[in-house]
Structures are given as C-alpha cells and as structure tokens.
Nucleic acid binder design. Sequence first.
DNA 1: AATATTCCCGTTTTT
DNA 2: CGGGAATATT
Length: 719
Amino acid sequence: MDHLLADLSEPQREAVTHTDGPLLILAGPGSGKTRVVTRRAAYLASTVARPYEILAITFTNKAAGEMRERIGSLGLAEGMTVCTFHAFCAKLLRVYHERFDISRNFTIYDTDDRRKVIKDAIERCHLSSENWTPATVERHISLAKNELLDAAGFEGSVSDWRLREVARIYQEYERQMTEMAALDFDDLLMLVAKLLDRDAELCDELECRYRYVLIDEYQDTNLAQYRIARLISQRRKNLCATGDPDQSIYGWRGANIENILNFERDYPKARVVRLEQNYRSTKRILAVADNLIVGNQRRKEKALWTANEEGVPVHVAEFDQADDEAETIARSIVQHVENGDRYSEVAIFYRVNSLSRVLEETLFKAGIPYQVARGVEFYNRKEIKDVLAYLRVLVNPADEVALRRMINTPPRGIGATSIERLEELCRASGRRVFDALTNGSDLSSLGRSAGKVSEFAALLRQLGEAVKMPAPDALRFVLSHSGLRAMYAREGDDEDAPIHNLDELVNAATEFQNEFPDSTIVDWLEFTALVSDVDSVDKETDRVTLMTLHAAKGLEFPVVFIIGVEDGLIPFRREEHVSDMEEERRLLFVGMTRAKRELTLSLAHWRMRQGATMRTLRSPFLDEIPQDGVEWAEVEDEAPVSSRPARSGGGRLPPDIDQWSSGTLVRHPVYGIGQILTLFRGARRTHVDVQFQRGQRMQWVLEFAELERVDYDEVGDTG
DNA sequence: AATATTCCCGTTTTT
DNA sequence: CGGGAATATT
C-alpha cells in the first residue's frame, strides 16, 4: 500500500490517508487533485473498505472515465461506483422505480425535447407568450427544480404575476412529462433528493452500500446535489468533498458556491486539507492568475505556489480585427510546431461557442489540424435523434415526443394535420397514441390518411420485435425496416453525411454492448442521453483543441490562448442581465490556470457579434493583472475603411470614439446619464442604442447625437 | 403533403 | 450570422 503514498506531498498524503469522518480537500488548480482522489479511493479500497463500498461522484462523464481509468491502473476499480450525479440518480430511479412511482423504462428528455414539451404546455395554457419566451420559462423551471421545487412547490413560492404564469406552465409541463414517463435532467436530481428526504430507510440502505462517498467539484453542486450528498452519508459522515471555490463557474445553472464555503459549518468535525502547491504552471502564469483571483470576496484563501520554473512572460495581445487575432494565433501555432511542439499541446479557449468560427476558418486555411469540443453535437444531429426516437418509443410507448417525431420520418404522407387529428382522437378516448395504433383500433375517422396511418401502425407492430434485442441489433433492425437508412442513403455519402453518422452510432452502440454485455436498450439510451461531446476530446490525434472556458475545467495544456478578453464577453454581459463578476473572474482564472508553459490573452477592437461588427473595449480584468511578468503587444489600430464617415456627410464623431463600445457610459444634455447597449459602425454612419438611467431608451446616429463619454467613477455605482 | 423561400428572432456557459 | 418558424410554391 506504500506505493499509494510514496510520491505524495505531505498535504496530499494527509488527504489520502484520512479515512473516517468528513473531509474537505481544497484543491488549487494543478495541485494534483485527481491523483489524490484516485489514490484515496484506492487507499480506502485496500484498507478500510471493499471497492464496491465506494461511491465517487463527478461532474462530467469525462472526469468519471478518467478517474475510473486511473483507479483501474492501480488495480482496484472493480466494483467501484464512479459516475456523474445524473447517471447515479438515473440508476437509482430505475432500480427503485416503484418507490418513485414511475415506469422503469422512463425516458430522459434532453434540452430539445424539453423545449418542445414546454412550448406545448404554453399553448395549452392559452397564455400569450409576450411576457416570456420558452427559454425563459425553461430556465425558471430548471432553477426551481435545482431548488427542489416541483410544480406545486413553485406555485406556492411565487407571488409575482409573471411567475404565477410560469407556475401554471410548469404545472402543465409536469403533467405532460408524467404522462409520457419522461424526466428531464433536473428531474433526475430533484426526484432522488426528494425521495431520500422522506425515505430514511432508503438512505440507510444506500449508506450501508456506499460506506465511503466522494464528491468531486463540490463547488459546483446545487441544492439538489448537496442534499443527495448529505443524505447518503448521514450517519457515518464518511463524506469527502473536493473542489475549489475559486473554480466555481456554474452558478448560472443553480450551483451554489456556499455549499463548499460552508462545508465546515455543515460538518463541524470536518478535516480540511489544502492543496496549494501547483505542479502544472510556470511561476509567472500562476502569479498572474493568482493576482486576478484575489480580487474575489467569496472564497477561501489559498496560498498558491509552485516550484516550477519562472517561465516566459504571460502575453497580452491586442488586435484591431478579430481576423488579425485568429491569424496571429495561427502563425504562432505554426511557429510552435516548427520549434518542435505538437499541435495537441495547444488549446484555444473562448467565452462563447460562436467565437470558434473565425478560428476554425483561419486554422483550416492555415492547414492546422484542430478539434472543437462542442456541447452535444453528435447526439443532437437530426439523423441520430431520428433513430433514437424509434428506440425510445419501443421501450417507452408513452414517449409521445419521440412518437411524434418518428411517425412521419421518413415522410409517410402523414402530415401535421393528420397527426393532430390522431392525437385528438386518442385524447378523446383516453388512450395513448401508441396503444391506439398497435391495438388495431378503428382509425377510419382519420379520413384520407387512415390508410397511411394503418400502414404506420403495422410498421410499429413489426418493429416491436426489436424490443428484446441488444441495442446494436435493435438499431440495425430499426434502421433497415423503418426506411431511415434508405432515406439517408439518398443524401450522399460524403465524409460527414448522415449515413456515416448512423454507422458511427451503431459502432458506438456496439462498443457499449461490448463493455456492458448485459445491458439493454434502455441502458444504452440512458447513456446517450447523459453523454456530451466534451467527453470525447481526444488527446490521441495530434491537433489543436478549441473549447469554451467552461469546458476547459479540469484540463491542462502546455500552450494556451484565451481570445476575446473584452468587456462584455469576459465578463459576459447582456442587456438587462447583470453577470456575477466574481464568477466571471473565476472563469478567466480557470482558463489561465490550464496553461503549463505559455499563456496568451488576446482581444480585438472590432468583433463581429450577432452579425454586426462592433467596437469593443478591453476586459476590466486585464487591469487587474500585474504588469510584472506580463508582456503587452499592441497593434496599430486602424479603423476599418468602411467606418470612416465622409466629411461631406456632415456631423462628427466624438474625438475619443475609439474608447466607445457597448457598455460605455455617456451623458446627454437632455436625457442625462445612460449606457450604450449597442454601437454599430456602418459604412457612413455610426449608430448607437442607449439606455438611460431614467428609463428612456434612444437610438441615434452618433455623428449627430450630442453624446459625450463619462467615466465609471464620475457617476459612481450605476447598477 | 412536401419542398423552397423568406423572415425574424435571439444570442453564455452544460448534465 | 444562423436556426427555426411562418409562408409561398410545386
């Protein structure tokens, strides 16, 4: 067992060998957390517990996979439960489905499915959607569920009339979801948390099964997750939480940083171990990042240090156009490779996915191989969702979102009207559409399309055969009998043609089947619902990695570029929407601390956003980093030719126009102080959209508006 | 009913 | 700019 401790630092060893009672591991970036966590699991498994008594919960599948692999290489993973919160809850829900009063074969709805149901619910409520978009409703419902409020609970908790309407929609949504035996991501957590809350017996049972619980990335837990963690370690308190408040970046989706900040209050006898030595970055990178993060209030102080070498200065590069930024990065990458680095050592991070486009174009032109880690690209493709809809209906006939999708895919001459009439018919007779179809009910009232519908019903019955097949076989069966394969075969077979993705899906299913020989279609569907493509960034092939700052958490690269370090982007800001500055700061901190050797922050004065090129301002965070150890490179700012207004056109731009952007505070002789929402430089005129403090909002041609810029400190706190 | 076209909207981050 | 929905066309 000594080999588990041999090469550990003192605090690391302490974290590994603490067995019983609550333990909080505050792990700075690059402090060897993964190593500690895996060693600890292995240590427990070889001293006080059996592997199957250990439960390790992570936030992403990637983290789970990595942990499983690393514990495996220590020879002890067999039987250990290592998975995400969502996967853990899904498993519990299946095993104890009776206690949850839900079908064992419930379907997990992704964001798309959920949105469809919410739109439906809104329609059924006959509410004008003037006041909120489906997205807004969705968000409210999601946040409510994170706070353990079901539809009834939510209704009881709101007074605002707008939220009351949301509550009605929530109720309708919940009703429909129940009818379809469908759960969304948030349900998985909420239902488990709620059940554990009232089922002490089950808690005991779980606690006996999982004597040691480990929660990774504890700073990103929401209330539901916090409760689950607490309830399954209630008696023994063998809960080990690891994380770093400075890396809490999911507040927007309900994560509560207080969970980690208050750990010692929640678990008074907790041992706290700080991992402060950084083994990843150079002194300079760490110093710059640390200098930024100390600006935060809500944190637990850590004295980050490293024995690594000084390294080269951190770069801050300022460009005129976003194209220049991308091109310079491309050139720099080429240089690196010429100097012997590999493409795979380089990563480029950005705040929003849309920024990847310019980069992709430029890298492609430069012949630089790259990969983009994007959310759920693969499983969101139309062809993939099409086939999966078939499987979903097979195992859960109540899944009407999937049924609606498959009924006319491929086109069977059953249009929207017919589908609606069919659904109406079923609703009237209180039957599920699936049952009505497969029981050979009388469909003659459907008129002209009755024939087509019966043909479809026959197909459904035929496909029923596939239910008992293993996933890959069922997939193949469905593909050939449904006509989907034929349909997509017609769409060509280029590199990224649908037909190839379908093949890839079959391969993925086969792989899954090999790994879990006893698995069913339901298991496979669950797997597809809970994976994302971020999980599949591969380090094998030699290429540059592009990803969002959020996706970068937990990774490291020798050479890191962070682009778009501009006000409004980092920190992100949107009209009417105040961002949490501390969380934005943490996000940049996370990005910076991914870098081992070299770090470059860059910004462009002009950036295309929402189809329009806009003037930008550098991120205020750049003013917070020390000049020491940082190298600034500025390029001459040549305003785009098109934006130089003709003198003869009359009017004039403010002299300091270069300093203006969205977010700039301005003063108007009549309207007073306001803030620029958008600033758009057209070929001849510059247009501004200004929101004034007193409530008015004006759109002007800047050349003629009597606006002058004012500084933040001149007007104090403007909210 | 299926396909082509236009238009309009939103637009962070992800399990 | 790009996706989805409403609208026009075959």
